[in-house]
Design a binder for these strands. Structure first.
Lengths: 335, 335
DNA sequence: ATGAAAGCGCTAACAA
DNA sequence: TTGTTAGCGCTTTCAT
């Protein structure tokens, strides 16, 4: 065990330098020599040891993806898009999850990515200035799916407008008592999408001259059970809403589950609109704001690869907005 | 840029060896020295370069996870369980997807994991003998979520019995025309679960003296749209089934979607049972065979870590079966 | 086109 | 407890 480049060199009657060149398809190797080296390598079942190669070259051949969660539909989609591209390029994908604020702080404090990856993709995390500095100190191209990142590429959506459109859809159907299931107002700000979507919701309501009681702005934790609890609370209000804007399809699904259980008919009694166009939104017949999720991952990683190919340590400092669109199904109806 | 262990050593007035020891919390360093080294390291913002450390020590500190897909609920759950454990241990998670047979063959032919990871977790892939050999040649602990692996740890479920139970549930409700949505019979064998579930289904039907016309065994590609197409076909049969066993909740969901669209009532006209207890199964009110998905990932990675801690190159050669259970909701009813 | 040799930045014997 | 010194297995100038 442990065939090394020297073994190949000896056997092929050339130097290790030549073996290295031949195996990496570098120029300045005669066809005959290259051929011979490849033969011997196959014969000996030799492959370059990545670790050694990395130390010598300084190139790590891997990209880190940092996400708050893995295992939700959204992140699975994004990850899947990124993996596809990385696989094509022969790069490794290192996955890190930072599920809560403490873990995130810790992650940036230890910064395990230092001299460890050639690039980074950040998913839907909003970083403190300090954390952005840490990232910058890595001196590798970074891109983000979600929040803009100073001096880097990011691909987002217009959350505020999208939420406004979703809400207007309900307003146009004649609803007046409209609640929103999102993320607690007081929760510290690791995520900006919830705040932006709230603003869009509030803007739509205000423009329509509609009132939003405080109890109509409720936390659903961006999860199915969270959406369920939130809806249960809304339904026990003296004046329950006749329509709900859920900031994610998962929360909308949880809400629908509770309504079914309590005999509340969708859309007859309550209309509901979600966000994302989750794989199962169509099955649930859920009206929702669709966004091209996997594509966002692909765009982000492509930006990193482009920078890498150009030898830059930064991605192009641009913010790309991909479009969202309202997909009307039958979870929404006139009041 | 590029603070090295030598810089720290100089500044702290000790040797690089001592710095290395102090930073890794090895014994045989006086408290005072360790203290001093840590101070200097912080001062200089120094962290060990993983690549160099890996080359010198031979330990890569990373684990590879190989999955057919990422981005489906099942794999997201498993991955999530694995990541949690790995994060706790400070190990890196390298993610590889092999979505089709060609990619899988390629992956094992090139074997990018050689000398690159300390352990491997294989998710629901059935490996050819050659591929198993390649894996063995890595000489690192391997564990599998799914198929048994010779000489390694694996954590599975009893697919056949689970499918039998699901089918019996339908039979006990008085159904006789029962169809199964699974994976095409002729499709080459990267996955064994579909075959095992078919066997369970067939056994239950046979034991009940019920006939399964060939057209009742239909391919749903283990996806939502696949399940939808399959159900559409079943419904256009001269004698459509009165009950369906879907080998995954996603396929069941697709089937339900088609039924709703075609005005077929669940469970009044057709009963349906799924498999997995997907996050949204409860929302869909889908009867299903539940299994502890994330836990399977955790068990597999723990086996790898245990072997690693013991300095073994193999996990314990055991097959663990985790239990499944039928969760009855209202997608199934008496004929 | 090819080879010699100096690193890459650490870790691990072994010695002191 | 601490230091010295070989490597780990490659890549990459610089010669030739």
């Amino acid at each position: 065990m442990g065939v090394s480049i020297e073994d190949v060199a000896h056997r092929a009657g050339v130097s290790t330098a030549t073996v290295s060149r031949a195996l990496r398809n570098l120029p300045n190797v005669s066809a005959a020599t290259r051929q011979r080296v490849l033969e011997v390598a196959t014969e000996l079942d030799y492959v370059i040891t990545p670790i050694a190669s990395r130390l010598a070259s300084g190139r790590t051949n891997s990209i880190a993806v940092v996400a708050p969660f893995i295992g939700t539909w959204f992140f699975g989609e994004v990850l899947s898009g990124i993996e596809r591209v990385l696989h094509r390029e022969g790069l490794d994908l290192l996955l890190y999850a930072v599920p809560d604020e403490r873990t995130q702080d810790d992650f940036f404090a230890r910064m395990p990515l230092r001299r460890h990856v050639d690039g980074v993709v950040i998913l839907t995390l909003s970083l403190s200035p300090d954390q952005q500095d840490v990232l910058r100190s890595l001196r590798v191209p970074v891109a983000s799916v979600g929040d803009p990142l100073p001096e880097s590429f990011s691909v987002g959506i217009d959350n505020e407008t999208a939420a406004e459109i979703a809400t207007n859809h309900l307003i146009n159907l004649g609803h007046e008592r409209i609640a929103m299931i999102g993320r607690g107002r007081s929760l510290a700000g690791r995520f900006t999408a919830p705040r932006q979507r709230r603003r869009g919701f509030e803007r739509a309501m205000e423009d329509a001259g509609l009132d939003v009681p405080a109890v109509y702005d409720i936390d659903g934790e961006y999860s199915v059970p969270g959406g369920a609890s939130a809806m249960a609370e809304l339904l026990s209000l003296p004046e329950p809403p006749s329509a709900v804007f859920a900031q994610s399809d998962e929360m909308a699904a949880g809400a629908m589950q509770v309504m079914r259980r309590m005999g509340v008919q969708v859309p007859h009694d309550v209309s509901i609109v979600g966000f994302d166009d989750h794989e199962l939104a169509e099955v649930l017949d859920l009206t929702t704001m669709a966004q091209p999720v996997a594509q966002r991952g692909e765009m982000a990683i492509e930006a990193v690869l482009t920078a890498l190919a150009a030898g830059q340590v930064k991605t192009v400092a641009e913010r790309e907005l991909v479009h969202t669109r309202l997909v009307v199904r039958s979870s929404t109806a006139p009041r």
